[in-house]
Amino acid sequence: MEKFLSQMMTENKANSTIDTYYARLKIFHDFLKSTGNDPRTLTPATMILFKNDLLNKGLSERYINNILSVVKNYFDFLILNGERTDFNPVLAPLKLRAKYPDTKVLTSDQQQQFLSWASNLQKNLYVGFLLMLFGGCRVSEACKLKLSDISLHKNGALYLTIEGAKWGSDREVPVMCSNAAKIIYEHTLDLDISSLPVTRCSPRTLQTYATQFSNISGIQMSCHTLRHTFATRLLEKGVEIEQIRRLMGHKNINMTAHYTQKAKINFKSIAPTIWQNN
């Protein structure tokens, strides 16, 4: 397994991706250790036992599928390196039908209420929330951005360069609110050490403050709610879903569709009336 993870590093996978692979492989490793199975001779029948073991632990269908996906990649690695000579035991029928959780999106009023509250926090924390709500950053991405990752273009637009992202989704994203862009840019001008992240805080800190707002206001939200809201607002403004996918750094269009399922689209301009001729 260490060789497999080393190969991932050689392929320039993001550190967060490698950490995720390690955590999921450890679950599999613990199962092999407890059952005395050797991955070089393991059969599909044993993989069914592994899947059932994960279900009995109460893990979600989506999380189990994610674990099985990493294990499948691990077995592909074994086959390519001659450790297995037959086939990959992680077969397609093992995949569970995942239930996507309901997405949480802030309404316009809730968004204004949150921004009013967040504006009273320390400037670096406020900027962190603006990066998620108007730049679509994951909380981990917002907390990694440095001065060199934020650039003001000649047309006045402020861009975020996100590198080392999940699934290799490196991208350049404009801040989608002029007022937020001004606040972020002015904050960068006050920073004296360019090598440190502009938010000067950890993801856990921002998550803690998001929970605090949720408890105070009664509005159910998290840092990820801001990312959902970013995608939803773009779709409502008429941005094509493929463009939103790229801005979000999603692996596929289905994920973007899930993020934007709460979008309220105005169909007045295309809906025919009963008085309209065909």
Score class of each variant (00 low, 15 high):
E240R: 09
T199E: 08
E240C: 02
S194T: 07
R245E: 10
Q207N: 13
M248G: 05
T229A: 12
E242T: 11
T208C: 14
L206H: 06
E242Q: 06
Y185E: 14
Q212P: 00
L234F: 02
M176T: 07
T205M: 09
G168D: 09
L160I: 09
D190F: 08
L247S: 03
T188R: 02
Q207M: 05
Q220W: 03
E163D: 04
I183G: 00
H224W: 05
A231H: 01
Y185H: 15
E242D: 14
T211D: 13
R245Q: 15
D190I: 01
R227T: 07
L191Y: 09
E240N: 14
V198H: 00
S194D: 15
H228K: 07
L160N: 02
V239K: 00
I183R: 06
V198K: 00
Y185A: 13
L226S: 09
F230N: 01
Y209Q: 15
V175W: 00
E172L: 14
I184A: 08
G164Y: 07
L234M: 10
R227G: 11
G218F: 08
R246K: 14
K182A: 13
V173C: 12
C177L: 05
P174G: 03
T208R: 15
R246V: 03
T188C: 15
A210K: 06
S178K: 15
E186M: 12
E163N: 11
N215I: 04
P203E: 09
P197N: 03
W167M: 15
Q243E: 12
R245C: 03
Q207L: 03
G218S: 04
C223K: 03
K166T: 11
I219D: 11
E172I: 15
G168I: 05
V239R: 00
S169W: 04
L234Q: 01
V239T: 07
D192F: 11
E163L: 10
P203Q: 07
S222G: 10
E242Y: 13
D190W: 04
E242W: 03
L235N: 00
S217D: 09
M248R: 02
R171D: 01
T225W: 12
T229I: 04
G164F: 04
V198M: 01
C177P: 01
M221G: 06
Y185V: 01
L247W: 05
R233D: 03
F213S: 07
I193Y: 11
Q243D: 13
L235R: 01
C223Q: 08
T225C: 10
A181L: 04
T205R: 10
V175Y: 01
W167H: 15
T161V: 12
M248Y: 03
G164Q: 15
L160D: 02
C223I: 08
R227V: 06
H228E: 07
H224Q: 05
L226D: 11
P203I: 07
P203N: 10
V198D: 00
V175C: 11
V173E: 08
S194N: 12
F213K: 06
T205Y: 05
L226P: 08
R246W: 02
L247D: 02
E242F: 13
L206F: 08
I183E: 13
C223N: 13
T229P: 07
F213C: 05
K182V: 08
Y209S: 08
H187M: 06
E163G: 02
R227F: 14
Q212H: 09
S214K: 05
L189C: 14
L235W: 00
A165L: 05
D192M: 11
S178A: 14
A210D: 12
K166V: 10
S214E: 06
S222M: 09
G168P: 13
L226W: 09
T199V: 13
